[in-house]
């Protein structure tokens, strides 16, 4: 059983939202409100962004990026669930990004010049399927592991011509999001049972290391904890 404060957290978040929606004036004191809080948003296990065909590609690809060993692969760690949540929400829509036209591809030093991430993913996955169909008459999942790795490497170098989107931009975005799902707090749907934190030895959401300042290079061995209050169960990787 994981200990979680989810019920409490989601209830309180409604209050936080409504109290900051309008312009406000503050005079004569610090506007602290009892019980107002801005807790983590917990992922929705039923969130869906990918079609089943897209999900098959994404699952296969993230598991080449972070394959299984003694520790879970990306998809085993929940990275696909993480991506479904991210892409069906504010991140996918690009709510906080500058998304005004005109769009054009500049120099790498000028950064991301694609449309919102949800559009980028959808388009890139379709373009990749079309490319592989045309070149090899196969889906990504039908390639051997070596061929899959080579294809991902080519994408990362921008050596694959995709019809609508920049291959390297897609790879960079996809790889960053995959790592984020793997290393991020489990509250967002990935890093199941804090597997990546146990893998590297990161204690998670602790906040007081004063007793360990003079650790002098010795191993500290913390069990990780998540911002949702859950404690890793150790157990199978």
């Amino acid at each position: 059983m994981h200990l979680t404060r989810r019920a409490l957290l989601t209830g309180a978040s409604l209050i936080a939202l409504s109290s900051t929606a309008l312009a406000r004036t503050y005079i004569g004191g610090v506007p602290w409100e009892p019980e107002a809080a801005n807790p983590p948003q917990v992922f929705d296990p039923s969130a869906r962004f990918f079609t089943s065909g897209e999900r098959d590609f994404v699952t296969a690809a993230v598991d080449r990026l972070i394959p299984e060993d003694e520790f879970a692969s990306a998809s085993q760690a929940g990275v696909v669930t993480f991506l479904e949540n991210q892409l069906s929400g504010a991140y996918g829509r690009g709510d906080i990004y500058y998304m005004h036209a005109p769009f054009s591809r500049g120099e790498p030093s000028q950064g991301y010049q694609e449309r919102a991430p949800a559009i980028l993913y959808r388009q890139a996955i379709a373009d990749i399927a079309a490319r592989l169909q045309a070149d090899k008459n196969k889906t990504f999942q039908e390639l051997s592991e070596e061929e899959q790795d080579q294809f991902l490497l080519d994408l990362s170098n921008g050596d694959v011509e995709l019809e609508h989107v920049d291959a390297k931009t897609f790879f960079d975005t996809f790889w960053q999001d995959t790592q984020l799902g793997f290393f991020g707090d489990p509250v967002h749907g990935g890093n199941r049972d804090m597997v990546s934190w146990r893998m590297v030895g990161f204690p998670g959401a602790r906040y007081d290391y004063r007793p360990y300042i003079d650790h002098n290079g010795r191993e500290l061995n913390f069990e990780p904890i998540s911002v949702a209050g859950a404690i890793s169960q150790g157990g199978k990787s």
């Binding site: 984020l180 991020g184 998670g204 959401a205 906040y207």
Partner: peptide, 18 residues
């Protein structure tokens, strides 16, 4: 406006994704 006690609580300020 942001408050330390409510917005940056030590139990959940440590969130890389967010």
């Amino acid at each position: 406006w942001r408050d330390t006690s409510t917005d940056y609580a030590v139990t959940n300020a440590q969130d890389e994704v967010r």
